[in-house]
Computed example of a mutant assay.
Amino acid sequence: MNTEYQKYIPKKAIPFVQFLIDEHHFTLKIVNQRQTKHGDFRKLPNGSYQITVNNNLNKYQFLLTLVHEIAHHVTHQKFGRVQPHGKEWKAIFQHLMLPFLHPEIYPKEILPLLAKYLKNPKASTDADVNLSLVLKENKAENGKSFIFAIPEGMFFVFKDIIYKRGKKRRTRYECLNTKNQKVYLFNQNVEVKKI
């Protein structure tokens, strides 16, 4: 039995997660950070199922990502091929998250935002700026800053391209790509490197 995952999630969540692993038969791999995703679900060529989760996530992000991916697996088992984040997945994800919506698992500052997010979950928790920031404990990765911490008019690097931070719109920031001179909108929880 693979118990490596236990150090990555809140202690009180372990029995629920172990139940899901035992019930749904998949291999869980904890992998190095990927830039484009926190987790992944796939059917392997031999017919078995694998879920991967990035090892750089804190325990609250890790747990949410793991349950998100388990929901993909359960959706696949129940419905076959459907929209990846469609109504079937949303209903299963909401159902699977219920036992974890508890103050012994998620802190009280995360719970209301998580409950709100779960009313209509998106493909990525990063799409919900407030939840994303509270899950990251309002701390950017080492050597990076959140876009809202970059002063207007200052330059930063995102995916090897230099941008100039512009004005804030309602919820996002206008940023000028210095390479192609186009303006892009950045969510306030995007992590960038200061220059």
Rank of each mutant, 00 (worst) to 15 (best):
H68A: 02
V74A: 08
A71S: 10
Q61S: 08
F93L: 01
S124L: 05
N142F: 13
R42I: 05
L98A: 12
K7I: 12
E137C: 09
K164C: 11
A123Q: 07
I110N: 07
N32V: 05
Q181G: 01
L114C: 01
A13W: 01
F155W: 04
R42L: 13
Y184K: 14
I195S: 11
M97T: 07
N55H: 12
Y163L: 00
Q77R: 12
I195L: 15
Q61L: 04
H73C: 09
A140M: 09
T171R: 15
P45I: 06
E191C: 08
K136D: 13
T52M: 08
K12G: 00
Q77I: 14
L28A: 06
V183W: 12
E69P: 07
L101W: 11
L44E: 15
T171A: 12
N120T: 07
K179Y: 08
F62Y: 06
K87F: 06
V67P: 02
K87E: 03
F158A: 00
R169K: 14
I110G: 07
V157I: 14
K164D: 04
N180K: 08
H73R: 13
A149M: 14
D22R: 12
S132C: 15
E23Y: 09
L118I: 00
F158C: 07
E104L: 13
R42G: 10
N180S: 10
A91W: 00
I70C: 03
L28K: 08
L118D: 00
K7Y: 04
F156G: 06
I30A: 06
C175F: 01
V17G: 00
K116H: 11
N55I: 01
E137Y: 04
H85E: 09
N54D: 14
L131F: 10
F186E: 05
K179V: 09
L185R: 10
P121S: 03
T171M: 13
Y173I: 03
K122C: 02
R81W: 13
L185T: 12
D40H: 15
H38P: 01
G166E: 08
P112W: 04
G143C: 12
I147N: 05
T65P: 02
P84C: 09
H102W: 09
Q6C: 09
L114T: 00
M1A: 13
D40P: 02
L185D: 11
I147V: 15
V134Y: 07
H25P: 02
R165I: 10
K7F: 06
Y163G: 01
R165S: 03
M97F: 08
T171F: 11
F146H: 07
K139E: 13
W89M: 01
L113S: 04
F146R: 05
P112R: 02
G80W: 12
K168I: 11
K159S: 04
Q50D: 08
H72V: 05
F158K: 10
A71R: 04
P107D: 12
A123V: 08
G153C: 13
F19T: 03
P151S: 14
M97R: 06
N120V: 00
